[in-house]
Nucleic acid binder design. Structure first.
Length: 613
DNA sequence: CACGTCAGC
DNA sequence: CGCTGACGTGG
């Protein structure tokens, strides 16, 4: 192999140095000793890299170039597939050894993205990952964005990159002239290298190192696998569903126009207000910032006195399902894989949950006949089944653990129906006399507890007066003083420290907790109460995912996780592995953490997601 | 791009 | 009352 077949293009704008690139022959040599290599003669001690690609979707886009940095002040750009530029067809092949070397730590900003892009070139990045985007997120999950630019501005007082809009009118990075591309791209790898030093030092002082290395870093690999795997959607089923919804919507539309006596845009809340409140003279029950509300609560109430609001609600439901799911999902089936590949975002939520986007597969409908129909289109590959495993009452169990409330803990230890138990306490009747309505109220109160309920909020949810809601809250805390004490002390801690933490030490700053405004303060108090509960549940399922993934590898099973929906894992498994994987999933999920109350996981399976549930 | 609305946990 | 993302409307 020729040693200097390609040239690495220098370099960041402020650095004129033109160092020798590592040559292919040198790269294949093992270092003479285990000392970190700071010279360019051997393997890098660690490597910062950043992929430039044709677009933002790592499953369907491909590599244009890669920038590399092994010490601050010196960065390189290797063009791979630029139009009208010297390209290096085997540059990636030469880098493969380094990127796959487990002993070389990798530094980057949003490494999951870069990992997925190079996987298409047959490169499987391995080793310790220093992801500066994740580090920034753990240091402040309230931050609205963690782009390299955002983070560099905050921590390096970095000025905006003058080449930031290097794309301009060009359709892809591959169109960018090499000199511009180099100055733009090389800087990114170098920025990540500089940020690593600062952010990981800060992680240590903030006691977030274990959360990073034990949970978030291993999860990068798992989420990359899940995104790469995708989930199979039956195009025929979903497209047929769309047609059916279309026909149904036509019927509803005609009916609505007939009742209203005129045509209008049903999807426009503004036009709907005119029809409802001006035309029919119905009473507006609630206001929004800009006018009268036509939300579901209002329309349900109005449906008692007129036939139109009910039809509007039907129309809205079907329209939502059609436009958001039935029409959209088939378009997102990847041509190459025949599957849908979501993005699992690890640095978005303030509590530590994941989010899913493009498409969001964490809000696929589940209720109602149409919800079932949509989930029936999510299917297992040939010879496989889908296994759905979800935690039962995970947040209330976590509340029982962290509050130490005996009543709550006992309920879970004896596996009692928690909503019925709460109904018994609220209404002072024996369990056998609890009606459906009483249980419904109790369920909403239990949710309210987790959300840091206020009399106002609970009253809205129950459709009663804040005063009545207040008596439910009082009644609840009479039975659960442990929960009341926990909430009081959590708020006190938040006021002192300015942040709250989860069981695994994840932190969320609560900046407004001492705000002069009572509204803002009370809002902060609810965040302080909810975040440790929701955030610990997020920690817990992340641990379960890591442990399950390791066990699947150890046992060389073919099963693969495909979706995580906050308290549920969806696994695609060859039929022959079904019994084994059910056992494994249940064990790893129920034992992810040892709490003072047992964790319970319900498992189902089937050829599609509806059956599995 | 803000807003209202609604799908999920 | 907590946490999200996507759609259509209308400026």
């Amino acid at each position: 192999m020729k040693t200097r077949q390609y040239s690495l293009f220098e370099d960041s704008p402020e650095n004129e140095a033109n160092q020798q690139p590592p040559t292919a022959s040198q790269k294949q040599k093992k270092p003479e000793n285990d000392e970190p290599q700071s010279s360019y003669s051997g393997r890098p001690a660690e490597l910062s890299f950043d992929i430039e690609a044709t677009g933002r979707s790592p499953i369907s886009d491909s590599v244009v170039g890669i920038s590399l940095c092994r010490e601050t002040g010196k960065a390189f750009y290797v063009p791979i597939r630029h139009t009208a530029s010297p390209n290096v067809s085997d540059a990636l092949a030469i880098l493969k050894d380094t990127l796959e070397d487990e002993s070389i730590p990798k530094i980057g900003h949003n490494l999951k993205y870069d990992m997925l892009i190079v996987r298409q070139e047959g490169i499987h990045v391995k080793g310790t990952l220093y992801d500066t985007m994740l580090a920034s997120y753990l240091l402040n999950p309230n931050k609205p964005g963690h782009s390299l630019e955002d983070v560099a501005i905050e921590y390096l007082m970095h000025k905006k990159n003058p080449f930031a809009n290097v794309l301009g009118k060009r359709s892809s990075f591959s169109e960018v002239p090499l000199d511009e591309a180099t100055r733009y791209a090389a800087e990114d790898a170098e920025l990540a290298m500089e940020l690593r030093n600062i952010l990981f030092e800060r992680l240590k002082t903030e006691d977030l190192e274990r959360l990073y290395f034990d949970i978030e870093m291993p999860l990068i690999y798992i989420l990359a696998d899940m995104e790469e795997a995708g989930v199979k959607v039956d195009r025929k089923i979903i497209e047929e569903l769309s047609k059916e919804l279309d026909r149904e919507l036509d019927v509803l539309q005609a009916r609505i126009y007939a009742i209203a006596g005129e045509t209008f845009n049903i999807n426009s809340p503004k036009q709907l207000c005119k029809i409802l409140f001006d035309g029919l003279g119905l009473k507006p029950l609630k206001k929004t910032k800009t006018g009268y509300s036509t939300g579901v609560d209002v329309l349900e109430e109005l449906a008692k006195v007129h036939e139109l609001p009910g039809e509007i609600l039907n129309y809205r439901t079907l329209h939502k399902l059609k436009t958001t799911y039935a029409d959209t999902l088939p378009r997102l089936i990847n041509e190459r894989t025949g599957r849908i590949h979501t993005s699992f975002n690890q640095t978005v939520t303030a509590t530590g949950r994941l989010s899913s986007s493009d498409p969001n597969l964490q809000n696929i409908p589940v209720r109602g006949e149409w919800g079932t129909r949509i989930r029936e289109s999510f299917i297992a590959d040939d010879g496989c089944v889908l296994v759905s495993a979800d935690y039962s009452q995970i947040e209330l169990r976590i509340l029982a653990h962290i509050s130490g409330d005996p009543g709550l803990a006992d309920a879970f230890k004896s596996d009692i129906d928690i909503h019925t138990k709460t109904a018994v306490e609220l209404f002072g009747v024996p369990g056998s006399s609890v009606t459906g309505e009483m249980r419904r109220v109790a369920k909403i109160v239990n949710f309210g507890v987790i959300y840091g309920m206020s009399p106002y909020g609970l009253s809205e949810a129950l459709g009663i007066s804040p005063k009545e809601a207040g008596t439910y809250i009082d009644q609840y805390f009479k039975s659960h003083s442990g929960v009341r004490d926990y909430m009081k002390s959590t708020i006190e801690t938040a006021k002192e420290l300015g942040y709250v933490t989860t069981l695994l030490g994840r932190k969320r700053p609560i900046p407004e907790i001492n705000n002069a405004s009572a509204n803002s303060r009370q809002q902060s108090e609810r965040l302080a109460i909810n975040t440790p509960i929701q955030g610990t549940a997020a920690d817990l399922i992340k641990i379960a995912m890591i442990n399950l993934w390791k066990r699947i590898r150890e046992k060389k099973l073919k099963s693969r996780m495909v979706l995580q929906i906050h308290d549920e894992l969806l696994v695609e498994t060859p039929e022959g592995e079904l019994e084994a994987i059910k056992e494994l999933i249940k064990r790893e999920m129920e034992n992810a953490l040892t709490l003072s109350v047992p964790l319970k996981v319900d498992i189902g399976w089937g050829k599609n997601w509806a059956e599995a549930h």
